[in-house]
Design a protein around this nucleic acid. Structure first.
Lengths: 173, 173, 173, 173
DNA sequence: AATGAATGAGGGTTCATTCAT
DNA sequence: AATGAATGAACCCTCATTCAT
């Protein structure tokens, strides 16, 4: 991975996240990256290839974020970490996460599969704690988490911190 | 509102909802509506004007959906109706709702303001029922509603019916 | 000639003069005249027909302006009136004259023929006054007059009044 | 400046001069230049940018034409060269000059500033020769030059050669 | 006479992509 | 690996004009 390649990825991530995939031209990406437009195609084949490269490079981020939760053995900790997940997203990664949410709607790229391991970990946790419907509980909590994440990334008026504390109390954590 | 005007709106709604605003060309809209492309601009000025027209015409739908909940006097009913809201969306209106969600991410058009009255009604309801943090409860429930709506519209694997019943039980309704 | 017909002509004259024939759309003319666009075509056939109508209606103005000079019997007066012609153009007729000049270049509509009678009158005048080359003198004076007119209509920095006095002195008038 | 860039400029100059700026489509320019239409915008940004490029490249021509007169020290020669200027315009440059005249009317781009140095040189010349109103003399002569130039470029019926000789005699040159 | 809906061709411009260097 | 010229299709939009009413 050359330096210019990285610059392209970085520029594309930021622009795709800010303006959307379709609204960002390869020309804009090239200029923003300080690179000739042709180079994008040399390295990433086409615009979609560029997107894939971003997504792939981000997969690690996603997995490491989830891994910390999934590896957890204490069920209460699994739930607590899920709830506070939003708080642990570094501001420098906002673009990546925003892009994830954007793509779900713009290109209908579902993130469901990626959530599956987390969902199972949660279901197990709720099961250990003798919740009646652990799977539904897991799904519900993920719904909350996603909603909270979306709210943060869109700059909604929601007070995230308060909401997280509120949820923790609700789950007696 | 002429017949062709309606056809344009209808076509645009469907295409914008399916493929996104930027990914849908006015040419495609015109062809889909069986209309000359120029007519779009005579009636709606801009591509964006076309979008606005769709949004405005949908405002009624949105308000009537919310009104039914807000007018409710029984606090328990307010909460129940909010939870089951997703179920009451007619399949014929999927395109409209999908567009709403899509736009939130594609054009960063926030729906926060529109939710405000509903949020207040919910807060009041929770307050009447002596919940400790009625506003946070309201916000949380809205997070759920949005999440569930999104899941349905994206064709997620979530079992909506089950989830709704689950939540109703949680709120003792 | 109905009232609306006149309004169209008036609007078209002003717009054609200000922005040019090609740069003025029939739509703009219609809006400026407070009239439906279709009406323009009902009355004037097409855009060029509208232009012709303006030109024809202006022909009278042009002829009456020249007539006063041509009818003059005193040769000195012929020359004097030609030189001061620019001064006698009413400000309300600027648009018409500006259009004349514009069209010469935009559509290469020559005004040469219309000048012919004036040129002959001038040649006769110079001949009566025993100028050596009366025809060339006539042509030269017309060159000056046109240049002066153009300068005025373009809002050039030339001091017209002074220049006219200067010319009158040169021709000993 | 690539070969195709030059071809575009050349084609645009010819077409703008012949048909006018507004009446010439970029498509026409591209076809005439044997080039893809997009290339125009890559190199010149806008249609207007294309025009500016032509104008800028022509500025040299204009300055060199004037320089020869302004540098002249003999006042009589200054006047003589001004009068005969029209004759010194190469036929290959007609398009450029025609465009200059056209633009004055089509886009109201004034050439006044460019004439200023020449006007001052003429005023000085007339002053040296003890003319009473050197500045007005200068302005009048420029009026003549412009008028004659216009006549030539429009293919008027004026006999340019004769007229120039006539004026030279008038100024005793 | 007058409107306003409707059209199809064409306007300038941007797009993702290719190619020679 | 990297550039920048070059392309052709598609973009949004405006045009002069026609037609039903």
């Amino acid at each position: 991975m050359t330096e210019k390649q990285e610059k392209i990825l970085q520029a594309a991530l930021e622009l795709f996240a800010k303006e959307g995939f379709h609204a960002t031209s390869t020309n804009k990406v090239a200029k923003f990256a300080g690179v000739s437009e042709g180079l994008i195609f040399r390295h990433f084949c086409n615009k979609e290839g560029l997107l894939q490269a971003i997504l792939n490079s981000g997969e690690r981020r996603l997995k490491s974020l989830f891994a910390e939760i999934i590896m957890e053995t204490d069920p209460k900790e699994v739930i607590r970490k899920t709830i506070t997940m939003t708080d642990h997203i570094d501001e420098s990664e906002y673009d990546f996460w925003k892009l994830q949410f954007k793509l779900k709607w713009e290109l209908e790229i579902s993130g469901d599969k990626k959530m599956q391991p987390l969902k199972m970990a949660l279901a197990n946790a709720f099961s250990s704690l003798n919740y009646e419907s652990p799977e539904l509980e897991a799904e519900l909590l993920l719904l909350f988490t996603e909603g909270l994440g979306a709210a943060v990334l869109k700059g909604s008026s929601i007070n995230t911190e308060e909401m997280i504390q509120f949820l923790l109390k609700k789950y007696k954590l």
